[in-house]
């Protein structure tokens, strides 16, 4: 019995090692791997771009991972990835080569059943600093506001703090989720929730709130009427090598930008 198990294990490990070694050879021989990590806001779009790019250029493997803007910047500085993704501007001391691939609006979202049709920037700030805690104060039901923010280190939160909070602190009683997706999921299921997510992810499950009378759309961002927007960045430490450059050129090409536009983002040349 033991022998059988032993033999089985040995055979299995041999097969495994062989198959791994085999594949390893294949992919160092022909394929070029580009590793990308960082902002979870940028990730879904980079993944989409990578999908298209890999179909057209089968010799490339593009590995896209999350981690968050700060982690992406750090990984890029340490050279553990070829490209970093960030959804906030670089801070001083983060010396990297930045490529703006597109712009994205941050929409304040509520449940579709919420009857309120617009908030001012001050009201949003008051909600997230817990000065307004009840929907009654905004002219709806007597019900606690379930506000949701992003966690520390998130690029979306960083941009939200800069563009909306203006130095005021997000209160400790506000709920925290660690991705655009989970914020959206709560807002879509809780009628009393309010949160902020990337404009590109807004669909009919949530309602994007007009801020100071301006509805967040691609055109209102282009004209500059909607102010809560941030760049999506790809980062490289020094000049990117030829393979990485090929991918970047694809993103900035007409086809790449068209893919991003379809996702509700604003192209970098507009």
């Amino acid at each position: 019995m033991v022998k059988k198990i032993g033999i089985f294990l040995i055979i299995f490990s041999v097969i495994f090692v062989c198959s791994c070694a085999n594949k390893e050879k294949k992919h160092s021989g022909k394929k070029h791997t580009i590793t990308i990590a960082g902002s979870t806001s940028v990730m879904p779009f980079t993944e989409k771009l990578a999908e298209f790019f890999m179909i057209q250029n089968p010799k490339f493997i593009i590995d896209v991972q999350g981690g968050g803007s700060t982690a992406g910047i750090q990984a890029c500085l340490n050279n553990t990835v070829d490209l970093g993704m960030s959804s906030r501007k670089l801070k001083e001391g983060e010396r990297l080569n930045e490529i703006i691939i597109c712009y994205d609006g941050i929409s304040i979202v509520v449940h579709p059943d919420n009857p309120i049709n617009g908030l001012t920037l001050e009201q949003v700030r008051a909600i997230f600093s817990a000065k307004i805690k009840n929907w009654k104060e905004l002219g709806w039901k007597d019900r606690r506001i379930d506000a949701i923010t992003r966690e520390e280190g998130s690029g979306t939160r960083g941009s939200f703090e800069d563009l909306v909070m203006h130095g005021e602190e997000i209160d400790d009683s506000i709920m925290v989720q660690d991705s655009n997706g989970s914020v959206k999921e709560i807002v879509a299921t809780d009628p009393y929730a309010i949160g902020y997510i990337s404009l590109g992810l807004v669909d009919k499950r949530v309602k994007a709130m007009p801020i100071d009378g301006v509805i967040p759309t691609v055109s209102s961002i282009k004209t500059g009427a909607y102010k809560i927007m941030r760049p999506f960045l790809l980062l490289s430490n020094g000049d990117p090598d030829d393979h990485v450059r090929e991918f970047i050129e694809f993103i900035l090409s007409k086809q790449g930008q068209e893919i991003l536009r379809k996702e509700g983002l604003i192209g970098s040349y507009e």
């Binding site: 991972q65 989970s182 999921e185 879509a188």
Partner: peptide, 25 residues
Amino acid sequence: LRLPTSIMDSGRTMAVHFYILAREG
């Protein structure tokens, strides 16, 4: 989410995939 081809690749298990599917809706 890519198919891992060597042990130095990153990969996703079913449980992690389920977690991401459910949490991100």
